[in-house]
Amino acid sequence: MTPDASKSRPHPALMALCLSLGVMFSVTTPAAEASQTMTRTQASAETLSSQQQAIPLIAAFMATSDMPHLNAALNQGLDAGLTISETREILVQLYAYVGFPRSLNALNELMTVVQARKQRGIADAPGREPERAIPVGDDLLAAGTANQTKISGAPVKGPVFEFAPVINRFLQTHLFGDIFERDNLDWQSRELATVGALAATPGVESQLRSHMLASLRVGLSAGQLRQVTEQLKKHGDAQTAERANTALAQALAASGK
């Protein structure tokens, strides 16, 4: 990586991926739907666990290439009990939203954090690798389409997919197939990460609103998402928190909550 790689613009294909996600969620119904069981017990339906609280911060600082704050957020997450595998998976997934350069730089930062903690005598739990076999071919398309429909609340349709059908196939086979079939990170955590990254990224407000709705569909409550906005306000910048708060208000209005 070159020193200024973290400032590179995401590849056009990745921007198209993010744009298509926003369109995808905007054409579906906002029915709330749980996805996978959380791996940890939450304090209540209105409160994020300590591990969950760290995820949007990790994502937001990754998206802005703010390495000092990312370092602190990674330490916060590991201190709270995120495993190395879970933390790594968050940074891997987010390449689809903020680009490979930022993902690679953030993974390098995680390596540095883990090594420094080891030298201080902290033994972080390695966590587990995905246990479920990832399907291939037509089975991968079927699994990804089912995941996409569950998160979206309905089969995905829209003019952009008629104009460029291949982008939906990429979404179904890669994002919702290859990535969402990896069972070492639950879907609530995946959405918390996406919300954090998009909130920190100017110009993608419609996608952020869509992922607030998706967060409700995978079982996060309005109270928990309000806590996300509070965390971003407390630890991030005012613009990031304002974008998150506006998107949440719009999502709650659209979902009738």
Rank of each mutant, 00 (worst) to 15 (best):
E181V: 14
S206I: 09
F180A: 08
P165D: 08
S206P: 09
L192I: 07
N168D: 13
A164N: 13
A193F: 03
R190E: 09
R169M: 09
F170M: 12
Q207M: 10
T194P: 01
H174M: 13
T201N: 00
Q207A: 15
I167S: 06
E191K: 06
N184F: 02
H174C: 10
V204I: 07
A197Y: 00
A200R: 00
F180I: 06
V195T: 08
P202F: 05
D178V: 09
T201A: 00
T194D: 02
Q172L: 09
N184H: 10
D183W: 08
E181W: 07
P202D: 04
D186E: 15
A164G: 00
E205Q: 13
Q207V: 15
L185D: 09
V166F: 13
T173F: 05
T173S: 14
L185S: 11
L192R: 00
A164M: 03
A193I: 05
H174P: 06
G196C: 02
F170H: 12
A193T: 05
P202Y: 03
S189Q: 12
I179Q: 05
Q188P: 01
R169S: 13
E205G: 08
T201C: 00
T173C: 07
F176Q: 09
N168E: 07
F170Y: 14
Q188E: 07
G196A: 10
L198Y: 02
I179E: 12
L198F: 08
V195G: 01
Q172P: 09
D186S: 12
E191L: 03
S189C: 11
G203D: 03
L171I: 11
V166H: 12
V204W: 01
G203F: 01
E205K: 08
V204R: 15
F176V: 04
P202C: 05
N184D: 05
L171T: 10
L171P: 13
F170G: 12
I179R: 02
A164C: 05
A199L: 02
Q172W: 03
S206L: 10
Q188H: 04
L175P: 02
Q172C: 15
I179S: 03
F180K: 00
Q172M: 14
F180E: 01
V166K: 15
L198D: 00
V195S: 03
A200Q: 01
A197H: 01
H174A: 11
I167F: 07
I179V: 15
Q188A: 10
A200E: 01
L171G: 12
A199Y: 01
P165Y: 12
D183P: 06
D186V: 12
R190F: 04
Q207T: 15
E205M: 06
A200N: 03
S189V: 02
D183E: 07
H174L: 13
S189H: 06
G177I: 10
D178L: 14
Q172R: 13
D186L: 05
E181P: 05
A164F: 10
